[in-house]
Every structure is written in structure tokens, then in C-alpha cells.
């Protein structure tokens, strides 16, 4: 039989926006802009023979449609088959054995965290990734001791945001990164200069100095294309759940246990709380299932399954489903109004 049924590879998933669409390439970790008319052809007419698709549009746009297909074949996103039954779509189910996937732990002037308690609680819930943000300057010895503690637990990756100060130099921090392979990133914020190593960002062991100051949890919640993540795990998670808050637990600078440090609602002192008990409280997980299909504006955005989210800083504090306040993208125009300032290179 002739191969004339155009099919997207199962890892290439079209997402429609208000003014344009994208195809997310979960295997090669990238995306491609396509017009909404092509989105319609790829989804509404999936599994049809090319000639049938031409006929659907009264053979008025054969050349254009053919050009679209040629373009996608060239991008290795589309192929032709003779039996679409052999090529089903991928399941969009998401599942994870980690009750908690990631955690933010903030450090302020008043912090008195019981690190052993916090880390053992996180480990027990299967959490393998933590982010530590310090709004105040801490010595090299402090970071050294903290990393030694972290090494005793099953933590795979650590992201550290530390305030610039004496003793936190390139050389000393580089050796910290070398000593602890769990370090994914050290970002020295409030630095008088900007610097990052050649080849940044690498898979692990990154070090950078940034002039941007992170003096409280309010710096968070920025939405930017530089935070897009495109892979099978995050895409299916974003499809089903909140792409920031799902399976997250945090400790704010005052030691309060929260879903995210920027949230108002707290669930007791982290030092004295059994984290697993907190997860059972309905209020704690109430935002976990808010995916972008429910969020105003985001629901019409083509980036909605590869973008981050923020439910703490939103445009209308009275509407929990309103757009993140720090997002400058307008899906109706397909335009970023202004480029957001971020602390990452």
C-alpha cells in the first residue's frame, strides 16, 4: 500500500495557542512554531490519507498543505505511513514514585533550621532534588557543613542561591562544587560582577555570579522562555498537574512548612512536623491539580505545557485561576511585551 498518511512521531506533540501553535519535541527537547491551520490538520485530520485531507479543504490549499508537510518531514517530525493503526498516540499519563519531588528551603537572618530533621523527612518522601536560597550572607564554612549533611541523604541534586560576601570567591566555590557532585548550581547573587564558566550550563556542577539580588522569596515567580523545559516527564506532568507546585514542599525563612515559600498558608514549624502528615491535609495539596488548561490566559497559550507557573504572585489575588503576575507574554498577539529580568544567566 502507498504510504500517504502523514503522522507525527509520538514524541512530537502539537499544542494550540490563541494566535499560533507549537509542536513540542519531547525527544530532542525543542519546539517548533506552526500556524494554527496546520495544528488543525495534524489533530482533527490525524490518520487520514493526504488526498482526503486535501479534499477536506476542497483542494483549495493543496500546495500550502504539501509545503507544510514537506517542512515537517524536513524537521524529522512527520513521516508517512500506510497504516495509522500501527502508530497510536502516546499516553499523556504522568506518574512518579516520589511523594515529594522537589523542595525549596529558604534561609533568612532569623532561620534556625534543623537540617537533619528536614533532610530526613524529605528523603523519606522520596524527594531527590532540593533548592536552598539564602537571602543573607553565609560563610563558606556554613555551606561546606550544609553540603556534608546533604551528602548523608539520598539527595541527587542541589541548587544553591547564596548571597555574595567575603570568602565566597570563584576558587573556593569551585572547589566546593568539585567536592560535592550533587551540586547542580551555585548562583552567587547580589554580586558586584557577572560571571559564569565557559560551557554554562553543564549537566551538573555549575557556578555563576549574578548582580541580581535575591533578598526575599518575592523574587520568585518570574515566567520566562529561559525556564521552559521540554521533555516527556515535565510535559506530561504539566498536562495533568501544576508545573510548579505539584509534589513540592518548602520551608520558608521563618521555618514554616509551606507548599511554596511565597504562599501565605503555613502548615506548622518544619523543625517539629512530620511532613507525611502534612501531605494528608487537604489544604496542602489543593493547588497541585491546577494545570494551565484552567488558568486564565495560560489556557490559550501555546507554551502552557513546557512553561513554569506561579500561583503565589497572580494578576488578580482574588481569583486563584488568574494569570501569573510576572508573565509578560500575550498569547493573543504571540508576543513577549517586555523581557523579564531573571537571576539566571
Amino acid at each position: 500500500m502507498e504510504k500517504n498518511i502523514p503522522i507525527l512521531y509520538s514524541c512530537c506533540i502539537p499544542v494550540k495557542g490563541a494566535s499560533r501553535s507549537i509542536v513540542c519535541d519531547l525527544q530532542r527537547k525543542s519546539f517548533l512554531y506552526i500556524p494554527n491551520s496546520l495544528y488543525e490538520i495534524l489533530t482533527l485530520h490525524r490518520g487520514k490519507r493526504k488526498e482526503e485531507i486535501f479534499q477536506t479543504y476542497d483542494n483549495q490549499y493543496n500546495d500550502t498543505i504539501q509545503e507544510y508537510f514537506d517542512f515537517l518531514v524536513e524537521q524529522e517530525m512527520l513521516f508517512y505511513c500506510d497504516d495509522s493503526e500501527r502508530f497510536p498516540k502516546m499516553s499523556m499519563d504522568w506518574m512518579s514514585p516520589a511523594q515529594i519531588q522537589d523542595s525549596i528551603i529558604d534561609i533568612g537572618a532569623e532561620s534556625a533550621h534543623d537540617w537533619d530533621h528536614i533532610l530526613s523527612q524529605l528523603e523519606g518522601l522520596g524527594c531527590r532534588h532540593i533548592q536552598v536560597r539564602s537571602f543573607v550572607n553565609k560563610s563558606l564554612d556554613f555551606w561546606q557543613e550544609l553540603m556534608e549533611k546533604v551528602s548523608e541523604y539520598a539527595i541527587i541534586s542541589v541548587e544553591i542561591h547564596m548571597k555574595h560576601g567575603v570568602g565566597l570567591e570563584k576558587e573556593s566555590l569551585n572547589s566546593l562544587v568539585q567536592t560535592f557532585p550533587q551540586i547542580f548550581l551555585i548562583n552567587v547573587h547580589s554580586s558586584p560582577f557577572t560571571w559564569f564558566a565557559e560551557g554554562f550550563p553543564r549537566r551538573m556542577g555549575n557556578l555563576q555570579f549574578s548582580k541580581v539580588s535575591i533578598d526575599s522569596e518575592t523574587h520568585c515567580g518570574v515566567i520566562s522562555p529561559s525556564f521552559f523545559i521540554i521533555n516527556e516527564k515535565t510535559f506530561t506532568e504539566g498536562w495533568n498537574h501544576n508545573s510548579c507546585l505539584n509534589r513540592k514542599i518548602s520551608v520558608d525563612q521563618y521555618g514554616m512548612l509551606k507548599n511554596c515559600p511565597s504562599m501565605v498558608e503555613a502548615f506548622g514549624l518544619a523543625n517539629e512536623t512530620d511532613f507525611e502528615e502534612v501531605l494528608k491535609k487537604e489544604g496542602f495539596t489543593k493547588l497541585w491539580n491546577i494545570n494551565k488548561d484552567q488558568v486564565e490566559v495560560c489556557k490559550s497559550c501555546e507554551f502552557r505545557y513546557i512553561c513554569t507557573d506561579c500561583r503565589a504572585y497572580i494578576q488578580n489575588p482574588n481569583d486563584p485561576l488568574s494569570k501569573p503576575a510576572k508573565c509578560n507574554y500575550n498569547p493573543a498577539l504571540g508576543k513577549w511585551e517586555t523581557v523579564a529580568e531573571t537571576s539566571l544567566a
Binding site: 512521531y9 509520538s10 514524541c11 525527544q27 513521516f79 493503526e85 500501527r86 502508530f87 497510536p88 498516540k89
Partner: peptide, 12 residues
Amino acid sequence: EGQNRCTLYKLP
């Protein structure tokens, strides 16, 4: 590795 196109398949 991983650059070859892979796609979900249903055997007859």
C-alpha cells in the same frame, strides 16, 4: 544516541 526518531508502535 537518542537522536534516531523513536515512536510508539502497536504490533499487529
